[in-house]
Design a protein around this nucleic acid. Structure first.
Lengths: 340, 340
DNA sequence: TTGTAGGCGTTATCAG
DNA sequence: CTGATAACGCCTACAA
């Protein structure tokens, strides 16, 4: 049994396709009688408009694309959650692609989405991303576009971000307030803006509090993993046995640090205090519970979608759209890993 | 600047649309010269076929739909990972929808995907799902369809599953082997097949080992959360202070149990041994490290996609397709929560 | 109130 | 080797 079409309905009812189309869309200029006949038949045939044809006619697919580094991260899966929840409410479907932190893949995926002619794109840059050509292409084609979390500052698009520098500053000041004098930082890779900003926040907090900055106390992740957390914790304690505070780029790494400390009888928070970033679920269930920075992930997704929707609608109505930047608040969450 | 079309290329080159189309698809019956001309112009115009038109013509969208209860679960996000990775390799994009464990939403989403005319659907049932009408509709429309993890046994479709009963059986036998005599079970909700099967596995393991089954030792989750883990742990210790083993439907709940035990000075594994299910990442970083059942999530997604692809291709070639059921292996992972 | 005609951009068939 | 023509299913001026 084939899918029902307007044509079919029109033929069996002995009227024109146009009338059927209008009837189904409840146009005022169709008689009640025909409308009823059309509705009834459409129902019994389980008619649904062929979305391929609608797409072609209306030049929109009610589908948006989302590119993230990895779904399997608590932060990103929460963002995804926020985006698809809101998208669905507004009649949009979401295609998700993962860059796996690779710029090559990211470029390919942007191309895929562009070719697919999605109505808009939401993206968080991969760690490797250091060139913008693919992003510029999105802008050039005037596809509605929103960046979040890991963004390229230079690209003129809407953005949903946190103030990474400020958030990191507060995290490190929290350590200082708890009495730390020699604070190490496990930072993220070179490229991503947020790794840079968090590092700068770390540095500023030290300066402001008259603690000399020592580049030897900064360790740089490549893959930002649990395993790197373990490895750096080991190295830090070997290089600087008198470290008494540690700020990690993200909770996953901080949890690795705690794992090493636990296994090697290094007392947290007594000997070393540790703070992470992002408030992953696991940070509240490990022992000692990890202090961290709350970063509103679901809301980030939610806001990103609405910015995109605004731009989509503006475009449709040929209105000018000025990119907006939304900065969400963060806050330090104190748990056992920094409590006295 | 508008998107380039075949028509444009044809006009500026003074040839027919047909020839351009053929040239771009490298048909043998186009002269090298015209081909080159077409390719060059297409490139400089950055021509890409309008996917809306292609969809309409070919009646396929190279897009599949995926409905899962929640992305924000380690297990599901891994499955998602497996699916989109393989889909992309095969030229398919993936639309993801979340049922939030609600049958209402799930039905709506099936409808959305059907209307969208995706080329196939992969689904894991919500916990609430106890009726099949929407699923039957997928079958009736002959849309390629694969179920995984939480499935409806009665629906004749391809499936990727584990043997939940056997896996649970082994988990409980592991507890028994470690000396447990009085084992409680925190089970999942009534409906989902996997909750039922795990419960049956628990029961069988007891029977096989001559431990009388006591329904009072079985507690039933509603939402399957960390918080329920805490609450049930408390209640179990109040109801049966002499419990010495506990099998939880999933790691999230088991971690809640551990949290309660840690906070109330109940020694794990000395006083009570605990085993979870699914091997969430967090289970290896908490303390004590949680014993659990490894469930291959990435591979589940991977296999689910390939089963779907097989069916899609069979349909295209009008071949008969017989649904396949793939059962993946599980294994008990022993960690501190059950070690002596 | 209803219908005609044209077009969205591509692909497939068939004739030249 | 090339092209005219129709069709996919829907929408929308414009006529009648």
């Amino acid at each position: 049994m084939k899918e029902a079409t307007l044509k079919q309905i029109a033929e069996t009812l002995g009227i024109s396709i146009t009338t059927v189309s209008k009837a189904l869309k409840n146009y005022p200029d169709v008689s009640k009688k025909t409308k009823k006949a059309v509705f009834d038949l459409a129902n019994s045939l389980q008619y649904t408009p062929n979305s391929f044809a609608v797409n072609l006619r209306t030049k929109e697919s009610k589908t948006i694309g989302l590119i993230i580094p990895e779904v399997v991260h608590h932060f990103f899966s929460n963002v995804v959650n926020g985006i698809i929840a809101e998208a669905e409410k507004n009649g949009y479907l979401v295609i998700i692609l993962q860059s796996n932190e690779s710029i090559e893949l990211e470029k390919k995926q942007v191309e895929l989405l562009l070719n697919k002619r999605v109505d808009g794109i939401i993206l968080s840059l991969s760690n490797e991303s250091n060139d913008d050509d693919h992003i510029k292409e999105i802008i050039r084609r005037k596809i509605p576009f929103v960046q979040f979390d890991k963004i390229s500052k230079l690209i003129p698009s809407s953005k949903v971000i946190i103030n990474d520098q400020k958030a990191a500053f507060e995290a490190v000041e929290h350590l200082i307030a708890k009495g730390c004098k020699k604070i190490a930082h496990i930072r993220g890779p070179e490229n991503p803006q947020n790794a840079i900003d968090r590092f700068l926040g770390y540095k500023k907090a030290l300066e402001k509090n008259n603690i000399p900055f020592n580049s030897k106390l900064v360790y740089t992740c490549v893959n930002v993993t649990f395993e790197e957390g373990i490895a750096f914790a080991k190295q830090i304690m070997a290089d600087h046995p008198d470290v008494d505070g540690l700020f990690a780029i993200t909770d996953l790494v901080a949890v690795g640090v705690l794992a090493f400390f636990n296994d090697n009888n290094i007392k947290v928070p007594d000997q070393v205090k540790v703070i992470g970033f992002s408030n992953w679920f696991m940070s509240q269930v490990i022992s000692p519970k990890l202090s961290t920075v709350e970063q509103p992930s679901f809301e980030m997704g939610y806001q990103a979608f609405y910015l995109l929707l605004e731009e989509i609608n503006a475009n449709k109505e040929l209105r000018e759209f000025k990119p907006k930047i939304i900065e969400l608040n963060t806050s330090v969450i104190e748990r056992e890993s920094t409590s006295l």
